[in-house]
Design a protein around this nucleic acid. Structure first.
Lengths: 110, 110
DNA sequence: ACCAAATACATTGTTATACAATGTATTTGG
DNA sequence: CCAAATACATTGTATAACAATGTATTTGGT
């Protein structure tokens, strides 16, 4: 392996930030499908999300009723599962943002 | 239990932030002991760290050579294990801070 | 026409970490 | 005198990222 501490740290940091990141993107009420989200996040943040991370994450968010999903057949190609944020998801991402901003302010003070 | 998503999320977020927080506090080159760090962090950030979280965390940081420790006998009371950041710890916390600032900026853009 | 890469979903096993619970021992305060 | 605080530590449980693997379709280059 021989991974340095920072690399492992980034993986741990994702355990809190990925759900926040995904909900933040869905906050604009547009619909995204899973594969799309991986690419959107990579483009916007340079953060790589493994497929084995994102798909279970979306299932958790759905189970918690923070997002809703629907299958959409494509004229050509594989059907996509589109996700949309719910009212509970919107409320939650607002709470998260408050906590995050507070944490960030504290870290900058230390 | 009946914990809401945000509560669970905060616990997950700590998996990335606690090591960063501890190293940030130790960055000023002063020495702190474990029990002290728990209280310092609670005072400064309102974040509660369980003892069962902090002591293993400090052991990990030591194993990675990011901090050094020494036992200090007290004239009265239980001996304390004091921690001090190492040069590698300083370099690491700088890397972490860069990553964090970048992540924060990105989140604010989304 | 062929085949590798990209698209799009998913599951399994491994690893890391927060935390509650529990344990030991000493000291302080009411 | 005894509960709370101080100060360390370990064990078991739950959660989540990720590599690896799997299925199936479509696109692009030669």
């Amino acid at each position: 392996m021989e991974e340095n501490f920072t690399t492992k740290w980034i993986s741990q940091l994702k355990k809190g930030t990925l759900s926040f990141l995904v909900l933040s993107i869905l906050k604009d009420e547009k619909e995204y499908y899973g594969y799309d989200l991986i690419n959107e996040i990579k483009k916007k943040t340079s953060i790589d999300i493994a497929e084995g991370t994102l798909y279970p994450l979306m299932n958790r968010l759905k189970k918690e009723d923070l997002v809703a999903s629907q299958w959409v057949e494509q004229e050509s190609g594989i059907p996509r599962k589109y996700y949309k944020i719910t009212p509970l998801g919107l409320a939650t991402v607002t709470e998260m943002k408050n906590y995050w901003d507070n944490l960030n302010a504290t870290i900058n003070l230390i």
